[in-house]
């Protein structure tokens, strides 16, 4: 269970996140959507303890993993890029197979395309069991096939570990297919919160409707 109360993040006078209350149940898959600067990444980085909040409280599971939006390629081949987490080589190869990267296993990670690197980054994070998985735009660099593989892998991992998944996205497909719940953020505040298909079909307010109309285009 994640319980957020009065969570704020400010940079000087500017408030980038202001969440009076948010509760996420165990095993839930929650997607955050919103325009640039709406606070999606800030929220995930606060939960990953990579940022310090300006106020409020967060109760969350201890074992949390975070995949940043900008994937990093460690020196060396793809297998080494996954085994830095301490997992076995066989597990790394299984994940590469799952994300259709096994044919590149011996290549240097620095030579991968953006989409391939993002899938490798997901392999790395999925090689460690956790209670809370935080994914920052996990399909932003992927093509349609790559995005489908990512969604499938996230769902399989969640089924296997029973973890809670929080992800930010600009993709209605990811929100609808991988999440049980969709929250739309605007200026660090919640504009809409509910079942993804319902929000996408019937937004709660004018701003959310306008934002989703932009997505549909």
């Amino acid at each position: 269970m994640i319980e957020i109360r009065d969570l704020k993040k400010c940079y000087g006078e500017r408030t980038v996140l202001d969440l009076p209350e948010l509760t996420v149940g165990d095993g839930e898959a929650l997607a955050f959507a919103g325009p640039n600067g709406s606070g999606k990444t800030t929220l995930l980085r606060l939960l990953a303890e990579l940022l310090k909040s300006s106020g409020g409280t967060v109760k969350k599971p201890d074992k949390a993993l975070y995949m940043p939006q900008q994937s990093y390629a460690f020196k060396g081949d793809l297998v080494r890029n996954i085994t830095v987490t301490g997992c076995e080589k066989s597990e790394a190869k299984r994940l590469l197979e799952k994300l259709e990267l096994s044919h590149l296993a011996e290549k240097k990670a620095a030579s991968l395309s953006g989409g391939e690197l993002q899938r490798l980054s997901l392999c790395r994070v999925l090689s460690v069991p956790c209670e809370l998985l935080l994914l920052d735009e996990p399909t932003s660099a992927c093509d349609a096939k790559g995005a489908a593989l990512v969604i499938e892998a996230i769902k399989a991992y969640q089924k296997e570990t029973g973890c809670t998944v929080l992800m930010s996205t600009h993709s209605p497909v990811l929100a609808a297919k991988a999440a049980d719940r969709l929250i739309i953020l605007n200026g660090g505040r919640i504009e809409a919160d509910g079942e993804p298909k319902r929000i996408l079909m019937n937004p709660e307010n004018e701003w959310a409707e306008h934002f989703i109309a932009g997505w549909k285009i």
Partner: peptide
Amino acid sequence: KPVIDTARGLGLSKAK
């Protein structure tokens, strides 16, 4: 910074 962010995101120890 990206190395530290990635490592911390993966829950790796400080030594690692």
